[in-house]
Simulated assay, not measured.
Amino acid sequence: MGSTPLFAGDEINTIVLNSTRSEIEQNFDCGHEIIHLSKHREENGGIFRCFEEAQNSFLEWEANEGSAQLIVPYQDFIPRFVHAAFVSPTCDTFMVPELLATYYHVSPRVVEIRMDSLSYEIDQYRCGVPVEKLELLSRRQQQKRGIRASCYSAKCAFSLDWDSAIG
């Protein structure tokens, strides 16, 4: 996998996408670089090469999370996921990541990562908390509080019993 450079300029910014990556990978890559532009402009002299060895892991995590929120916003994703996985009688649980990946124009892996990173919030929503009232916690904050969220990607992959998905 080659680098996807970003050059933050005074008047013109340039994002170079790797043509060997698929359109859906480029979609996520572009979102990732947009987050670098908006949040990390002053870092690295305004130049980012996201697939190089020497990079700031926090900045890369933040750009990945920001791209995910930009393209697959939790406010839309959580209700859509819950409907596909728990409400829709025609949706096979194996197909939920594929179905949502097609909808958001991302890879199934992005959907699986989103399912995992939002599992605590999905649990809350399934328990009746409205999306606008969800408590958003990082994995570290959840660990500090002793919260064990469901693993929805495993439940989809192995078609586990959805009725025991919370708790």
Rank of each mutant, 00 (worst) to 15 (best):
V96R: 05
I12Q: 03
Q69M: 09
P79R: 03
E11M: 01
Y125V: 06
W162L: 13
K144P: 00
I147H: 04
R126Y: 14
E23Y: 02
I113M: 15
P89N: 08
C50G: 15
M1G: 11
Y120D: 04
S67H: 08
I12A: 01
L100A: 05
L134Q: 05
N27K: 10
P97W: 15
S107T: 12
W162F: 15
I122E: 07
S67W: 04
E65I: 12
S150C: 08
A8W: 00
Q124Y: 11
G31F: 04
L59W: 05
H36M: 14
F48I: 12
L100D: 01
Q75E: 15
A157T: 07
V87Q: 14
I12K: 01
D29V: 00
A154M: 13
E60Y: 06
N44T: 02
C30K: 03
L136H: 09
H40S: 01
L134C: 01
A165V: 15
Y152H: 07
E62S: 09
P97I: 15
S38M: 15
V129Q: 13
E121R: 02
S164Q: 12
G45H: 06
D123I: 12
C156E: 11
S150Q: 02
I147E: 05
A85P: 03
D116G: 13
I15C: 06
L6T: 10
F48W: 05
N27H: 11
Q124D: 08
I24P: 00
I113D: 09
S22I: 02
A63V: 03
V82G: 07
E43I: 10
I35A: 10
A54C: 07
D161Q: 10
D163A: 08
I47Y: 11
A63W: 10
M95P: 01
S19G: 00
P108I: 09
T102M: 08
N56L: 02
C30R: 11
R145N: 11
I122Q: 04
F28H: 09
V96E: 01
S117T: 12
Q124M: 06
N56F: 07
G31H: 05
V96T: 04
G2D: 05
Y120A: 06
G167D: 14
F58E: 13
R139W: 10
F28M: 13
V72F: 08
V111L: 10
D116C: 04
G128T: 10
E11F: 00
L37K: 00
T90S: 09
S57Q: 12
L160P: 01
L17Q: 05
D29K: 00
P108M: 14
G46M: 01
I147D: 04
H40R: 03
M1C: 03
L37A: 14
V131N: 11
R145G: 06
G66W: 09
C30E: 05
V96P: 09
S153Q: 05
R109I: 08
